[in-house]
Design a protein around this nucleic acid. Structure first.
Lengths: 219, 219, 219, 219
DNA sequence: TATGAATGAGATTTCATTCAT
DNA sequence: GATGAATGAAATCTCATTCAT
């Protein structure tokens, strides 16, 4: 349809398939089983190749039960994504400003990002796949990237104000570019399958970031 | 959405019955029309949504004629990609070593990369989409990224040897990371649709790169 | 729906599934086989219960071939309907005015209508079913009924002008009502399954019509 | 559109497991709510498009409660129909014989029929739809039409015996045909959506009926 | 009685690929 | 080489009906 396409009503209006949250304990359990199954199947087969039937089979439910809780593959994918922590979705240095020691702060957040990327590599790969196929997810990612860039840009601005970072840099572009660097490096390593050591990569990225901003030691 | 009967597996294990290059002039013309049509359709509809029938219709040929020249959508996509210059596929600084002035060299190649990315944004988006869906193209991208990274790593190593770059950096990881930065920044700008000015972005990236490597002026 | 319901293009635009008429002889033959098969299946199973698979099976084609020529059950039903003569779709007296003998004229057209109704009873039943289920066909029927009513109303007006019919009657309402009488009587007899004799029914309807209009003998 | 799992056959051969009438007050109330909801939903969506889930939602009951009172959509439709007065289901002249004044009698019953048709137009449309889809309802309609025809035929026979109506007419066929005329005219006006004035239509139909039977004034 | 989650059969529709002309 | 009709596998989605609580 396509749906339908599928207009149900005789007046041609289409009801947006809104799914109610489960009201009973049994319902909540079934929904949870479906989400877990979806994660398994997505990670195994990829988003595009995953069939709803695979998911329900994996969850041990009837095929029709899927639609009790979700109205599309996209929707259950979103539910799967919600298990990803926000902090993991983008590299960040949000404690940069508060820190007496920006370098350790960058090091810490970089390391944390890489670790969680590695831990969720399959899911990150999925996200990459879906964001390049589905406009809604592309938009979602853009909004998140923007939010992080703004926070990092503010941090850079603060450092510049305190004379601790290269004043010539455009804070927004620099923040976006350096975030990009970390995100793409992680992608290259764990999705494309380079075999860089996590700690070494973390150190290099931290060093590059610090150098790039020309961060001055605070002491 | 019904499943395409082909390209089921994500591991890319599809047998490719090779098609002979066209022998006659008419054949060469038809093939060229198909490739051009494919580019149009891919850019309009995306790789996944593009149907072979759309391509043959756009090319003004019968649907069956497709198989005279190509044996799959992947294969014609490869043909379309061959129009992209190699240098455009990855950010590079290959003239870095020879240059007396590494900064201008970085600036020039960054600017060139961004320009061609902007010019071929639709195709780059396609490449991103396909590389995240088809293992063969993912592999292809990895090999190319590796090749560029090796060359850039060598350049960095040379600068370090001449005392012109931060000796603490791991040349391979630094090269990979900085390339990633430029590639992903371009992607963010022209695929995700940020609205950064090309020149400003180019300047920022150059500055970050130079800072990151702690490149010393040669004079 | 069927494909998510079902926008093909990435921009969300939906292509109206316009089917080209067949270009080859083979194509024309296949299309004809499908229409014939559809009539058989519709008459046997009714419009709603008919499955496209039944039609293609009956036609001896692959299921997918259906969509080479039609894009929906409604569309092939329309093709089946086109075999019905226009004159058969509504009771009419269009030669009423010209006739020197309006009574024989009414008798002849009534008899002709009933005969063709009987001959196409199954199809008329189908039309009744579909017109009460599908707005497009309901509209189609209304337009046709209107056209016939206008012609008959004109005939009545002429008779009134010549002093040959009851001048108190509203020509439009009388025409509509008397047409309704014939149409519904035929429906009652051949669809609901009364067992009235065609000739007797024809005579009665003619007599009622003549009486109702108070038609005077012209001699 | 996927096929409903039930009511496959057009011959209406569905086993109907009877439901006991509700024993408690609460039960009676629930049943009444369901019937009212069904009418609303049927009139809004049509019989075929109406889902049992829509009905229970509208009634504010759980979906499973439906089967406590009804065993199918057909059965609840029948319950909805029972709200329609019998007299409304067919045009009638049942007081014709007793009347000293057959013309006024015909006028009165015609007018009454049209008025109630207009008032229940949505339900009459539904009945038309269902009677053309479900054999049980088609049979029901036929039986009722027969009963009315018999009564009207008797009335005509009486008039003929008293020398007050055209003796050449077959009473049964005339009764059936004239009833058809009124019923179909009402259908055309309020279901197909002509825009005839009720009183004008009523007058015309009465006049046609009186003329058709050649009814003589009794005085 | 009432609830609402669970079930699963089954039709539609797509489109890559083949093949007779 | 070119044509375009024919093929058929496969996945989605619906919703009447059942059933455990």
């Amino acid at each position: 349809m396509p749906r339908p396409t599928t207009s149900r009503r005789e007046d041609g209006s289409t009801t947006v398939p809104h799914r109610e949250p489960p009201l009973t304990v049994r319902g909540a359990r079934t929904r949870a089983r479906l989400v877990a199954a979806a994660r398994t199947v997505f990670e195994r087969d990829g988003f595009l190749n995953a069939r709803l039937a695979d998911i329900t089979t994996e969850a041990g439910t009837a095929s029709g039960s899927f639609y009790t809780y979700f109205s599309s593959k996209e929707e259950i994918f979103q539910a799967v994504l919600e298990e990803l922590q926000d902090e993991m979705l983008h590299p960040h240095v949000h404690d940069l400003v508060d820190a007496d020691d920006p370098v350790s702060s960058i090091a810490a957040s970089t390391h944390a990002y890489l670790e969680s990327y590695q831990r969720n590599a399959k899911l990150m790969q999925l996200l990459e796949q879906v964001a390049n196929v589905d406009d809604k997810f592309r938009e979602l990612r853009k909004r998140r990237a923007d939010a992080f860039a703004r926070r990092n840009a503010q941090a850079i601005r603060d450092l510049q104000a305190r004379g601790l970072a290269d004043p010539k840099l455009n804070p927004i572009l620099a923040a976006g570019s350096l975030s990009s660097m970390v995100a793409r490096a992680a992608y290259t390593n764990w999705v494309l399958g380079e075999d860089w050591d996590l700690d070494e990569l973390s150190d290099t990225l931290t060093q590059l970031w610090v150098n790039a901003l020309k961060i001055q030691p605070t002491t």
